[in-house]
Amino acid sequence: MPTMKSGPVWEGKTVYKATITVRLKESVLDPQGSAVQGSLHSLGYEEVRQVRIGKTMEVWLETADFQEASDRVDAMCRKLLANPVIEDYEFRLEKGA
């Protein structure tokens, strides 16, 4: 884990780590995934039926509780981290880390 900058720690706040996955929607063709699938096939992995490429982001945040952290991360995804026109997102939230 990268070292976290030490900021002010308020009474009763907890650090959460969100692991966010953003990928193209199922309905949107993924040219990178198709190219990688082709390469896997030429390597002999003919069983591969589909490859989707996405990105993972890790965000550490400090909030009053789990619910607040979850709401905030969800808003971040909608406003910036994912483009709702072409991308879906999901995230996992864990305490500490």
Binding site: L24, V28, L29, P31, Q32, N83, V85, I86
Partner: peptide, 10 residues
């Protein structure tokens, strides 16, 4: 409206 994707031929 809309969004931009990587070129289909990459």
């Amino acid at each position: 409206p809309g969004a931009m994707r990587v070129n289909d031929h990459l």
